[in-house]
């Protein structure tokens, strides 16, 4: 998917509004008393349009995987809504939830633990049909599974093999085939290639792009590798401590980042070009990410930000197009949650 997607003209397929997930911290054994909460996701909003890939990046602990689980309703949201075709997923249960989940599938990070070692590949990929028998009639299932194996580039004769007989890349293909089984519209990929070797990563990424074209899928692609996210995404959201710091088209985020965190994150990525090491500017952040159980007041990034002022501690910056860029015609006009948003090219691409 390299052509930019016009995002204004279409209806989003998924609308996320003010999503919040707090995990309670309790004390005591018998009478558990809540003493606080880990604010894993704290008010995240975004849209996903049909046929596009939305990348979500951030460091560990920023809440990106929790967002993925909330979108599937695998975790119950504390607050906020996830609208899929006008229906709020977070309020659904039972039969209605099952029907929605048919259209939203997930591919997990670790292909070694997300496949049951005691089931054959055929059983793993065919299991979704047991839950949703209306998709494939009983007699047809074996044929469907073999078709799916073929689609993801595995030999259909491997249907009776077990996961341990496959390499990491092949296992991830099995995970993708299982995700495709029910013809979903949306696939949520949580770090789908980070466990794979470099030469195998490219194979899986290319496969995912091919499948997106073939089945007109929408992807939410969660990863910490900013280079891969840029390659596959049409739009990118940057998360920090449970909040969206900046969101925009790939050109906006990578060539015209305005949030200091995005700038620091991009400047920290090593670029495979030794010529660049002398003249690339590095922003080295001090310290670590604060605990999500006790996030800083105001802007959450202020404790590590070189631009932080008193205002940042008192007033939380909202995710919006900064006023000074509102009239701009370049991609710099995108949503950024910073009081002092400023354009800075840190990648050296523009």
């Amino acid at each position: 998917m390299t052509e930019p997607t016009p995002v204004t003209s279409r209806e989003p397929i998924l609308r996320v509004r003010g999503l919040v997930k707090h995990f309670p911290l309790t004390q005591g054994i018998l009478f558990k008393k809540q003493v606080g909460a880990v604010k894993a996701v704290d008010g995240v909003s975004f849209d996903l349009y049909p046929g596009e890939t939305l990348g979500i990046v951030g460091e560990s602990g920023c809440g990106k995987s929790t967002v993925a689980k909330l979108l599937m309703n695998l975790e119950q949201a504390t607050a906020g809504e996830v609208f899929y075709k006008g229906q709020d997923i977070t309020k659904l249960s039972g039969r209605a939830l099952k029907a929605v989940r048919r259209n939203i599938q997930m591919v997990f990070q670790d292909p070694y633990t997300s496949l049951n070692p005691r089931m054959t590949v055929g059983d793993i990929i065919g299991e979704p049909f047991d839950i949703h028998p209306e998709v494939a009639p009983k007699g047809d299932r074996r044929k469907r599974v073999q078709e799916l194996l073929d689609v993801v580039g595995l030999n259909p004769e491997y249907i009776n093999r077990y996961p341990h007989q496959f390499s990491g890349g092949q296992r991830q293909r099995i995970g993708i085939a299982r995700g495709l089984a029910l013809n979903p519209e949306i696939i949520i990929c949580d770090e789908p290639v980070s466990a794979l070797d470099v030469s195998v990563q490219a194979q899986v990424i290319n496969l995912m792009e091919k499948l997106q074209d073939e089945f007109s899928l929408s992807y939410i692609f969660i990863a910490h590798d900013l280079s891969i996210v840029r390659h596959i995404s049409d739009r990118v959201g940057v998360m920090y401590l449970g909040k969206m710091a900046e969101i925009g088209s790939d050109a906006a985020i990578y060539e015209h980042p305005t949030h200091p965190y995005t700038q620091a994150l991009l400047s920290a990525v090593p670029v495979p070009d030794p010529e660049a090491r002398e003249h690339r500017e590095r922003i080295i952040l001090s310290g670590d990410v604060p605990s999500p159980a006790n996030p800083p007041s105001g802007c959450r990034f202020r404790t590590r930000c070189w631009k932080a002022q008193d205002r940042c501690a008192q007033e939380e910056p909202l995710l919006a197009i900064p006023a000074r860029f509102a009239q701009a015609t370049t991609p710099v006009a995108h949503e950024s949650a910073c009081h002092f948003a400023e354009e800075k090219d840190v990648v050296g691409a523009a």
Binding site: S199, Q203, H231, V271, A349
Partner: peptide, 24 residues
């Protein structure tokens, strides 16, 4: 050469990635 071509770059939006076929 294959390895260098198969990694996506931060500073470029590439086309399809080159993939080394097969497995180690």
């Amino acid at each position: 050469k294959g390895l260098l071509q198969s990694i996506p770059r931060l500073d470029q939006k590439g086309q399809e990635l080159y993939a080394i076929k097969g497995l180690p």
